[in-house]
Nucleic acid binder design. Structure first.
Ligand SMILES: [Mn+2]
Ligand SMILES: [Mn+2]
Ligand SMILES: [Zn+2]
Ligand SMILES: [Zn+2]
Lengths: 147, 147
DNA sequence: CTACTATATAGGAGTTAATCTTAATTGTCA
DNA sequence: TGACAATTAAGATTAACTCCTATATAGTAG
């Protein structure tokens, strides 16, 4: 079946935009709809390519700007990964990270129970798992105080 | 106390380089030493700045290339984060990701036990935790088959 | 110790994805 | 229906990495 933006998703979108005083533009609607039907966690350029089939003249800048806006009001999320600038770690023993969402500090911690955290059966069966990492996010002590 | 590269770390480094047929150059030694004493998970440019105080003429390219090499032979690690290109997720409900280290595919899964995973006490006390994510990494079904 | 060769380096050009700038356009609301 | 603030397109700029190539050097064989 072809994808269909449900009334609920659309009204959720409009609701959220209004609450944040964002104008409902055709560009925003199409960007939201297009991301909503993506299951591959695309980046802006990939999405831009798809969206140009619907609004040929849309600019890459608009897609980038709009996705940032959407993330800010919480209707889309950023995905953790290994993009640039790449950050390096000299600590090769098993450990985990806390990351401050304000200053982007990444702080090591060790916690044995995380190291061999149980993997759901269906994931275990379909994929070949090499690493298990827990990523905790929030405010570091410095940034937490300032608020 | 000032940082001191222990004999063990140095012989570990030399051992690993030799096993991988990498020449022991002054640049490589200094890059390794400098990353080893960093606890902030630096990116290449930051490290380059620090290293220029020791080898003023060293090029950024060498730092980048060398860090990649080190990661390949497993003496340093890449850190997960939110660098560019940023990837977006329309799914805002709590969920977790499997990531293929070969093709970089990111695949959703839901697993309740991960959602409220217990946070170590000292982390809980020092930082204000907002999110807890589990990141599983390995080979996806496609890339696993090819090997 | 010296010479040889494959590997590594410096420096600059090229690339990618994002961000900024500016002028034109368009939702929203009075 | 207008006025105006918000949004957009297009192109310039930037940040960080990657490629290119001539030069330098670590490892090693003699
Ligand atoms: Mn670490
Ligand atoms: Mn997801
Ligand atoms: Zn912080
Ligand atoms: Zn894969």
């Amino acid at each position: 079946m072809p994808f269909q933006l449900t009334d609920e998703s659309l009204s959720f979108f409009i609701e959220k935009c209004k609450r944040n005083k964002l104008k409902i533009t055709p560009q925003r609607i199409v960007i939201y709809k297009e991301l909503l039907k993506s299951t591959d966690h695309p980046h802006a350029e990939a999405l831009h390519k798809r969206i140009k089939k619907i609004i040929p003249g849309i600019s890459l800048d608009t897609v980038n700007r709009t996705l940032l806006t959407f993330a800010k009001i919480g209707i889309v999320k950023n995905v953790e990964g290994y993009g640039e600038p790449r950050r390096y770690d000299p600590k090769i023993e098993k450990h985990h990270h806390f990351r401050c969402i304000e200053c982007n500090a990444i702080i090591d911690f060790e916690y044995k129970p995380y190291d061999d955290i149980i993997v759901p059966g269906d994931i275990q069966n379909r994929y070949f798992i090499l690493n298990r990492k827990v990523l905790l996010e929030g405010y570091c002590d410095k940034c937490g105080k300032k608020r």
